[in-house]
Design a protein around this nucleic acid. Sequence first.
DNA 1: AACGTCGTCATGCTTTCGAGTGATTTTGGG
DNA 2: CCCAAAATCACTCGAAAGCATGACGACGTT
Lengths: 156, 156
Amino acid sequence: MKRQVLIFGVVGGVLITVLKWTEYRFLVLEHSFEIYGALIAALFAGLGIWLGVRMHERRERVVVREVTVPVEVPVSIPASAPFTRDEAKREQLGITPREMEILTLVAEGLSNREIAERLFVSENTVKTHCSRAFDKLGAKRRTQAVQLGKEMGLLP
Amino acid sequence: MKRQVLIFGVVGGVLITVLKWTEYRFLVLEHSFEIYGALIAALFAGLGIWLGVRMHERRERVVVREVTVPVEVPVSIPASAPFTRDEAKREQLGITPREMEILTLVAEGLSNREIAERLFVSENTVKTHCSRAFDKLGAKRRTQAVQLGKEMGLLP
DNA sequence: AACGTCGTCATGCTTTCGAGTGATTTTGGG
DNA sequence: CCCAAAATCACTCGAAAGCATGACGACGTT
């Protein structure tokens, strides 16, 4: 960003100087003002467009970078992989099978209530499992848990 | 796009005219040329920046997607899919670029507050976008929205 | 000028989550 | 049999999420 502004300034300065100089050489005509004006306008317009695009692109790029941090660690196989859970990772994190089960359902977008109904347990139980799983995953939200779970190869 | 160019031209013309006119009124000083030059330069630079940003915004949404790709990092699979968002699907569902942006961040496990901070908007705005996006996706919860989004090729 | 879309923001209200704490069963292995 | 790990359930409370509704401005199209 700074570089662009710098270049912009330098070009501007050089431009002015050159114009000032040429003014005393040739083209000391009556209508030179309009010509010079048009030239300056055109040049700076182009420069402006360039700068604008550049600036905008930078910003977008930066934003995207921040947004794109997710580091995928697919342990599975390329196309059409049936997905095999990384049991080792699960063990390592101390996540129990039941917690894994709940986690899977969470990843499918079910609410605690729905999970409870599907597994024939109380909602409180689901919450407990969730809490523990989130803890072990280091997640603060269920969406984050899902994200982390996928990165770690625990979820499809 | 065309309108921008038109405005650009019109402003330019008016500018020249005004300058030409003022030239014969006041400020007929010796160094007026430099002043005028600077003014023209500044104005057209600003105009150019505006135009540049405006123009660029057009395909920005698309570009963003392409840039968003660099997710690769994994150890195994080198031929991993770079992921390209299904813009057609997005259009079809009537999901706006902004909503898509929010959805992406939701999928990364960020809370509404965090999203708001990252995008420099209020939390309420984020909620609004979320609601609309969920609606269009037919999701009741953010986790479900993420799940559906992935199935539909809208999210990585 | 009128209309439609998008993005922004707010307010009020309900529901869902998640943390913290504690407690009671299963269950598998030594 | 006994113990530890796992699974189950409950209760509170504050935070986060979600819903409904309305509004406003910037832009683009017609």
